[in-house]
Nucleic acid binder design. Structure first.
Lengths: 128, 128
DNA sequence: GGGGAAGTTTACGTTAACGTAAAGTATGAG
DNA sequence: CTCATACTTTACGTTAACGTAAACTTCCCC
């Protein structure tokens, strides 16, 4: 028995806590392309994975266009040497961006530590 | 000698690679409030730090409003116990969001590793 | 067969974060 | 004095990422 799993738009919307409008919008932008049973959209596990990747991109501040490009990088269909080199270069750029984000997160965490400490101190002061 | 350092809007724009329009927009939004010498804006080191924090927020996908709130957290001026508790709660939320971002980044890094490997393989195949 | 829930298309509205253009002011160089 | 450069305000324009409303179909339940 193969997992013949499919999803309705409503199911996915609930799972990922977005509206159906959002999912249809992503289709407009060419990020997902669900099958149809009549008029109705039928989503595959692959479509579901796409959504996951898009939303992960969003959490990191990526635009839909960026996420789309990023996802495209995961399957190099190029047989052209030049394009492969270009792809590698893009991958490298993304890597560097992610590392910048890591640094930024670390800095913020330190500041949050600091902020919380001042909170605690302020509360201790309140208790005379 | 105190560091009597100040900056023009143009200097800061160049340093942070944004337009002057952007910096004025941030002022409109109440994120910075430079002094004036006549009509002309004069930025202090503190203003410069603000800009840094805002742009760091941007790199992590924060809206200006979120960055503003976050920066506000760094100096609890509250003498109210209830507000201090609320602030702690917000700090905790930010922490959790940052940790989600860390997980997201890690996942992306793994996928980039994978993507690059496929690139390398494809290039090796090209060399017969 | 009437109704409700979930799906559909079409289309106009909204918000954030600036871009861009116009028109004026100030200031140092030559 | 004149010109270039850097600043200023005012104001309309733009893009991304959906929200929201209207009007319609499909399907299932009782």
């Amino acid at each position: 028995m193969t997992k013949k799993q499919t999803y309705s738009i409503g199911e996915l919307a609930r799972e990922f806590d977005v509206t159906t409008r959002t999912i249809r919008f992503y289709e407009d932008q060419g990020l997902v392309s669900p099958a149809r049973r009549g008029q109705t959209r039928v989503y595959s596990p692959a479509d579901r994975v796409m959504l996951k990747l898009i939303l992960r991109g969003k959490r990191l501040g990526f635009s839909l266009a960026e996420s789309k490009e990023l996802i495209g990088m995961y399957q190099p269909q190029s047989d052209n040497r030049h394009q492969l080199l270009a792809l590698q270069s893009k991958i490298q750029q993304r890597r560097e961006q992610l590392e910048q984000q890591l640094r930024d997160i670390h800095a913020m965490q330190l500041e949050l530590d600091d902020a919380e400490q001042r909170c605690v101190d302020a509360m201790n002061d309140l208790e005379k």
